[in-house]
Design a protein around this nucleic acid. Structure first.
Lengths: 206, 206
DNA sequence: AAATATATTTTTGTATACATTTTTAACTGA
DNA sequence: TCAGTTAAAAATGTATACAAAAATATATTT
């Protein structure tokens, strides 16, 4: 596992301190490498919003907040239905099959947060990739990456998983039946609802 | 000037080869530093889409293409009017003043491409910042960053500058008169038109 | 005691060195 | 001639070392 992944995993699972600036030596000790690969990982994580620079020395894990969640889901609700719409005609029976399999994996298992996040995103990717719009796709990926820090709430205290899974299944049915516009609006609603739920949960717990 | 900026500037002005993978030593020689700062810069530039990894060694400057331009302007046209709408009520007379000054600077001068891009973006930032929506703002910044590689066409062969400047001025008037919805639709149209023009220009020149 | 200045420690940025990986070139046999 | 193989070259990843910069602690003054 890459150092970058390890740190991300540790951020996701709250194994690294949130309020305090992380130092390069601290991390190089923790992961048993020199500061060079740590610097590399920090640069990437900073670029993706997993860390923010703390003045001129050190990086801080930014606190989760409802404002960020709101914006992320706002953008997702704008861009993902668009991308999905471009993909719609290009989604093959084979893709549906893989999507179903992915949902199945999400259902049964004793998965880590990172794995759940990966599977959930894998599902959506299957529906988006046939759009063949690399740039739009990349931005959507990035937004989901950022949003993944909030998965801990959705799969944990919010218990949103079951509802989400049902909607995913319905979405697949609509695709199979070729109902473009219904599928589109369900996806938009799916994202908007998830966002609203997350935001109000975040507001209530602070 | 930071190495990161220098390289970006050189990419923007086609002072670096496009088809061929850039090597770390090549860049460290060119800029007179060791490979470590080069690695740092490459990581950032890669994260922002200025470079793409070439297999397992080297980075390539991606070719400009109308598909990317189309997606970038699509997303901008979706997200920027939204951000602007949130900002609208919060834009102060002072902001308008600074926006006008920025347009003035764009008008007269013997500016480099990088400077023109910076000023153009500075103008839009003034209109977006009062929204106080950091996450949405950051994504919009990033999209404009990526789009800035295409400025060479807009300020060069397309000769789009004058038209753009006029619309910017009208936009400021609409803000001053408090006409929220007209300002909003002008901005959206402004972005969409610029996108369409750019895309058809790119299609025609290939 | 609070604010300012100074000294100490910590932290970062970058150069250099070297082992590993990857690419490129040369070679071999069909 | 060309695919596959091996050998040489190049490029990368990472450790270590050290100077510059920043943060922290200590001292000094009012």
């Amino acid at each position: 596992m890459l150092l970058y992944q390890k740190i991300k995993d540790d951020i996701l699972n709250n194994r690294l301190p949130v309020g305090r600036p992380l130092r390069q030596v601290e991390l190089s000790d923790r992961y048993g490498v020199s500061r060079i690969p740590v610097r590399d990982a920090l640069l990437q994580l900073k670029a993706e919003g997993w860390l923010v620079p703390h003045g001129k020395a050190g990086h801080i894990i930014p606190d989760l907040n409802w404002q960020e969640a709101e914006d992320l889901y706002l953008m997702r609700a704008d861009l993902e239905p668009r991308l999905f719409s471009y993909a719609f005609e290009g989604i093959q029976a084979d893709d549906i099959g893989r999507a179903k399999a992915t949902l199945g994996l999400l259902d049964n298992a004793r998965l880590t947060l990172l794995e759940k996040g990966e599977l959930n995103w894998a599902f959506h990717k299957i529906l988006y990739f046939p759009a063949n719009r690399p740039t739009l796709y990349k931005t959507v990926c990035s937004l989901n990456q950022q949003a993944s820090r909030y998965l801990g709430f959705q799969y944990g205290p919010m218990n949103y998983k079951d509802h989400s899974q049902k909607e995913h299944a319905v979405l697949l049915e609509l695709i199979e039946s070729g109902d473009h516009s219904s599928a589109l609006s369900l996806l938009k609603k799916h994202i908007q609802d998830a966002g609203q739920l997350l935001v109000s949960h975040l507001k209530s717990t602070n």
